[in-house]
Structures are given as C-alpha cells and as structure tokens.
Design a protein around this nucleic acid. Sequence first.
RNA 1: GACCGGGUAGCUCAGCUGGUAGAGCAGCGGACUUUUAAUCCGCAGGUCGUGGGUUCGAGCCCCACCCCGGUCACCA
Length: 504
Amino acid sequence: MTETGEAQHVIKARQEKLRRLQELGIEPYAYHYEPTTSAAAALRDYEAMSGESAVKSRLAGRVRSLRPHGKTTFAHLEDRTGKMQVYFRQDTLGDEGYELVKLLDLGDWIGVEGPMFQTRTGEITLRADDLQLLAKTVRPLPYGKEEKDESGESIEHGGFGDVESRYRQRYADLAVHSEVRDLFVVRTKALREIRRFLDDRGFLHVETPILQPVYGGATAQPFTTFHRTLDRELYLRIADELYLKRLIVGGLERVYEIGQVFRNEGIDRTHNPEFSMLELYQAYADYHDMMDLTEALVHHVVQEVKGTSVITYEGKQLDFQPPWPRLAWYEALERHGRLSAADLGVEGLRGAAREAGVEDADEKGKTALLDGLFKALVEDELSGPIIIYDYPVELSPLAKHKRGGDRTLTERFEVFVAGRELANAFSELNDPFEQRERFEAQARMREEEGWEEAHQVDEDYITALEYGLPPTGGMGLGIDRLVMILTDRSSIREVILFPTLRPE
RNA sequence: GACCGGGUAGCUCAGCUGGUAGAGCAGCGGACUUUUAAUCCGCAGGUCGUGGGUUCGAGCCCCACCCCGGUCACCA
C-alpha cells in the first residue's frame, strides 16, 4: 500500500528508529522467544500467591500503550489472553537497555521478563528486568485509547470503526480489537463442538470435491472456472450434497463435511458468495431423525459455547432447549400468511402474491409463487428456533415424497431462527427413476423458463443411486449464520474473517 | 439492480448562505523514576473518493463514475 501525506512521515520516523536500533546492535526482527506464561495466567498466579511473588514471569505480545516518564516508562503489553502492565526503569535495564524502551512504538512485538508487583494505584504490573524486541511495527496500528470508568468497564476513545477498512485490513482489525479476536474464537469453538458431537455419534468427517464438472445439491448459480490441462469448464460447488450421498451408497453410512460452498449471487447482510456449510448424511434415518439430531446438535453447540441454552439475539430471547416447535409448511402459511394455499389455484396464488408484494408475481409459476408467498408472509414471523416441515414437492427436487400417498408434499424441513433459515433437511430421495424424472423436470424448467438455478442432470449421481442408496436422512446447516446467532451479530461479514469485497 | 446515507490528517470526527481546511488522539523534539485516556511546553502532518463542469473563487453547487453502509429486490 502506498501512502501519501502523513502516514509516510510516521513510517519514515519508525524506519529511522529501526536504523538506530541496528546501530545499537539490536536485531529488530527476532527469530524466537519463549514466553513462560500469558498475561491472564500471570495475573491469576500473582493473585493466588497474594502478592508474595519473587518469581519471574516471561511474556510476549504487542505494545498496546506507552506512558514514558523520563527515566521510567509504563506500558501495556497485550497477548492473546489479555493485557499486562509493564514497568521499565532505566536503573534496572541499564542505559543501553533503556535506549530500546525509548525506541519502542505502539504495536511493536516485544518479550519481557521480570517479577510482578502492585503499583501505588493497585494495578498488578510486571517490572521488566529484560526486554527483547521481537518485531518492529513500522506502520502505525489504528489503536484507540482506552479508559477505565469506576466500574472497571473500559471505554474506547477514537478507535478503528470504519467497517470497510476493518474488513479489508482484517489483520489490523484483529490486532486492535480483542473483541473481534474473541468472536473468531467463538467461531472455532462452535466448529469444534459440531465435530465433537458428530464424531461421538460415529460420523466420519470427509472431504469432497470443490471443483465439480456438474454442480448440484441446491438451487443456485455457480461460479465457473477453467482447467487448462483438462481443457474444460469446472464449477465451484454450490453444495456438498450429491457427493456425500455417493458415500452413503459406498457404505460409509454416516458422513459429514464442513466447508465452504460458493454461490454466484447477491451480497448482503446475510449472504456472502462463499460461506461455510455443514452437511451430514445418516443411513437408515428419515427426516424425523434429522429433526431430533438437528435440535440436539444445535443445542449442544449453544450450550457448550455460551454455557446456557437461552441466548439473546438482536434483543430477543431465543431458547434452544429441545424440543422446538414444529409446524407444517402449509399450516405456517395459513397461520402466519392467513392463506389457505393448498386450496388455491395458480390464479388465486398469484392474486395473493401480488397483494403480498411479491415481485413479478404475474410472471411466476406455481412453484415460485408458493416460495415467494412463504418468504413474504411467513419467514419474518419465525423468531424460532422452529421447525417447518413438509414442503411442496416443487421446492424440493432431492427430497422423498411424504409417505402415505400425498404426492404434493415432501419429507423436508427447515429450521428458522430470527426469521432466517438456519438448517435444511430431508428424507433423501433414493429412487433412481424418480430422481431422473425430477432432474429432467428441472432441466426442462431451465430450458423453457430460463431458470438458471435449476438442477443439471447428474448422470453419475443417478448411476450411484442405481447401485442403491439406503434410506437416508440428510441435513445442511449454515455455519456462518449459526455463528452470527452465537455472537449476536447481524452482518455475516462480521463473522467471516475475510468477507468478499469489491476489489479496490 | 433501485432508493437513501456516507467517503476530509495514520485513527475518530468538525467544517456556516461557496472565500482557499480544523480538533482530539497517534507522530516528532523537550521536561518528568509508581503512571494509566499520564501531564506540561513546542513542532510537524492534507491529491478533501475519482474525473469533468459552473464560478473571480469549490471540501461545500451540478453531472458521471468508484467504494462502503442501510432499506428493498434477487438469493439459501
């Protein structure tokens, strides 16, 4: 990045310090340091020993604040666990050692070693008998200033608030905001708990292709790319589904995958072009089993990560303790949309859609009208968690018909939380003949109605089904949205380390 | 994609009916051996998102474009 104006001056000044350090024989970019403790642990240990510490602690981290007072300097060092005040004295460090203190800048990585004590104002502090520079920061980090009010709450002044810069330079955002680091720790914990839950139930964590010759498993437009040696177009996966079910055919019986999928669609607060999905498939299970499993899995994650099953999201209390309310799709439309959709013909639906403000209602077919009505009238009302089940067959090309004869419904459910879909599951269609028909119906919609999101016919997948897919329950869950709920964020970009932005 | 709001110093922001750009923090120099938004004295720091236009004169008005955010649409 090139700078004009002042950043250039600051950077020059720091480079000048770098030169002076080298003159003093100090290597500004070290190779190694071995901290013996962390800020949080050192504070905890000191308090446990009720102040009788002669033990030296060795810490490493970034210089977070500097308060020089002539021959003495106070600083805060911050590591991944928190902050520790450090006290430098010219008489303990020596004139040369103290020269290094004078050349420190905010953001520098340092290592310090020394005994702990309590200052006159009561803050537990490490007196540095030794100071090592680990890496010089030549570009100023956008630190704000922190103040502690009477209750010990810290108030940030200034700071780094521009969201665009925060996402573009996430490294600076993370360096400066411990709460952002905490958020991604929560994300990691959630992932770990998902894996633990599934591993404990005999699921195998597998990896399937991201580059696919035929995409499928969802209705979405793909990203295309090109393989030179193969001399052909490939697609970035829009879902893991079809490959995972091939593995069930192969006898793995319980599989799951967590990874990014890619959809070439709009970007907004709840959509990023690449996002993380959990998909799992379990042989011999149906969608009732998937309901129980989904409730248990999400509850487990919420409980382990948050320590409670009731959490606050966007000001609302959400209770994840199973069982969750379960409501049939048409019933939901009746209850929330006050619409008896099953009794209405296409024209009736179209009229209702127009009234509900569904865009292009006049050009839409029955499928799209139903979908539009549900989104317009019902989704926002679903604070959740709630399970909506038995979807119209037109919306679900990969789900089995509802058993018992009603050919208009499928054994599919979705979980809604805060008005948004969190999970999607069904009794997987395992009849190869019907699967072919549904693919072909989709292909016709693609050709006749120009519906680009419709499925392609995946011949190899049908071949797999012909070898026999046992009855199987499958479920997909949006990881990013789960993390949004766990961290009370309303933008998906807050929970993705490097969200997609327009190139500068 | 449509509409609304925003883009000014490294960061956070102010900038009047158009008169040639300001504060705090950060930075630099100086004083200071238990401070903590350290303090005190001094200094420096700007393609005002980009490109056009109107005007004697544009950060401000007009047009186009770029980027971000919000709402809606599209979309799991």
